[in-house]
Structure formats: C-alpha cells, structure tokens
C-alpha cells in the first residue's frame, strides 16, 4: 500500500480530486504495479545510456517564418467559457 500522504501528494500534483474510495483503490493498485516494477532493480544498468528517443534523429528545425493564425472564432469555438475573445477562468487565488 502507498501511504495516504503519498497518494494525496500525487493527486494534488496531478490535479485530481479523488474520492476516499478511489484513494484506497489506487493506493493498493499502484502499490501492486510498483511492486511488479521493482524487478527492474535486479538489472545492473550502471553504464547503460537511457533511451529517450528510439530514432537517431537530431537537429530538426523549421524556418523562422510566420504562417496562418487560427481565426478567433475557431480559437474560441471549443472554449467552455469565454469573454471578449478571451478564455474565461474562475479566480486564480
């Protein structure tokens, strides 16, 4: 089981408001998965270079040119709430 503090902290970082039942469930399920993942520690990876990308690509650039902008109606079409061509959100603090 993951401790309640860890579950709360991770849920806060992930911006998830979990119910008590969810917290319990995830605490045990995550612990199971993490325990399963513990087997990775058996491997000696001291001198192994991590693979962040499988492709040997490098230096992919674009030219500094200005392209099409979205028309504001399309930009805001999906907005749950809007005002004056802006996205509207509840108070920040």
């Amino acid at each position: 089981m993951l401790s309640r503090e860890v579950v709360d902290h991770v849920a806060l970082l992930a911006r998830l408001e979990l119910s008590e039942e969810e917290k319990e469930r995830y605490a045990s399920q995550l612990a199971d998965i993490l325990e399963y993942a513990e087997r990775l520690q058996e491997l000696d990876t001291e001198d192994v270079i991590p693979t962040a990308h499988v492709l040997p690509l490098q230096n992919v650039f674009r030219h500094d040119t200005v392209g099409q902008h979205l028309p504001s109606e399309e930009t805001l079409a999906n907005a749950p709430d809007r005002e004056d061509n802006c996205f509207k959100v509840p108070r920040i603090i």
Partner: peptide, 13 residues
C-alpha cells in the same frame, strides 16, 4: 523508476 526504465529500454532494444 523513470530513469531506470529508460535504461532498461536500452537493454530491450
């Protein structure tokens, strides 16, 4: 976890 997994990913490759 994450870094270790990226390294094991190399071993799998």
């Amino acid at each position: 976890y994450y870094l270790k997994a990226l390294k094991v990913r190399t071993l799998i490759r």
